[in-house]
Amino acid sequence: MFIQQIRNATIIVHYAGKKFLIDPLLADKGLYPPFLAGIREDIRNPIIDLPMSVDDIIKDIDAVILTHLHLDHYDDIAKEMLPKGIKVFVQNEQDAIQVKNDGFEQVETLAEDTIFEGIQLIKTQGEHGRGEELLERMGQVCGVVFKHANEKTLYIAGDTVWYDGVQKEIDSHNPEIIVLNAGDNVWNDMGSLIMGKEDVYEVHKAAPNANIIAVHMEAVNHWTLSRKELKRFGEEKRFSSRLFIPEDGESYTF
């Protein structure tokens, strides 16, 4: 298994001989307006450049997984640059209709037992914030678990905070590698949209033997948790040996 952080929630996963692109945000720095979230609203998104060219990112991709369709996970450049015949997995039929309308020809809704080229892809639950009003605004999201006889189990949690649903997914699948969106991004005064440092620590306590990769950091204007702060927190809580916080472009092999 090879996992490369690209930018924000965008990662590349090589798994059982196949190459997956997760949640592509492929625009140049500053192409989109800031999110109206009460922080850094004078800075356009993405707030940093890609670490490599779009052509290099999408080269030889076998499938794309979209955990949901917010702009910072599926943007206009991804719609334009990805081959329209590529396999695209989405969370539900509503998202499938939209992605098909964008011109993609092979769109499939993830299920509890989706099989792609011998790889089991399992849709997982998530909550994109806390509180009924915020969850309604943010809409449905998902994560995905990868399983194959020749690979470690991988859990990509997606845009979710820590709650009992994440605990259930960990209990059900016992993942050895966990990717968390961990920038503690916020929406106005309504609170966190994704995991902060305490959420990451809860995941570690639930899966103490798993390696955790923290992504979705310092890339769009409404982040509040830096890589440096999360690293320091991991050291304070004594789980830094299990916590990986990649710079954009950095990769790991497990």
Rank of each mutant, 00 (worst) to 15 (best):
G158M: 00
L69Q: 05
H204P: 02
I39P: 07
I245S: 00
L134K: 01
L50S: 03
L110G: 02
H222G: 01
Y74K: 01
I245R: 00
D164N: 12
Q120Y: 06
P175C: 09
D75G: 06
G38L: 08
F146K: 01
D164A: 10
T114S: 13
E169Y: 01
T224G: 01
E229F: 10
A219V: 00
W223N: 03
M190Q: 14
R227C: 03
R242D: 09
N101L: 14
E218L: 05
D60H: 11
V88D: 05
K79D: 05
S241D: 09
L225Y: 01
I156C: 12
D72C: 11
T114W: 07
I12G: 07
L71G: 07
E247M: 12
E198N: 12
K197M: 15
I47T: 13
L121R: 00
Y252K: 14
E133M: 01
L25C: 12
G17I: 02
G139K: 03
I43K: 15
M195F: 06
E218I: 01
S192E: 09
G129L: 00
D171M: 08
E117M: 10
N188G: 07
I43S: 10
N188P: 00
K205D: 04
S192W: 02
D189Y: 14
L26T: 06
I6T: 06
N221G: 05
M52R: 11
A219H: 04
P34L: 09
D113N: 15
Q120R: 15
N188C: 10
Y155F: 15
I65F: 06
P83M: 12
I3L: 09
R242H: 15
Y163T: 00
A16W: 04
H14P: 06
E247I: 07
P33F: 12
E247H: 14
Q94S: 14
D55Q: 14
L135N: 05
L121I: 04
I57C: 07
F89I: 00
G17V: 07
T114G: 07
F233R: 00
I48G: 08
G85M: 07
V161E: 03
E41C: 06
G38R: 10
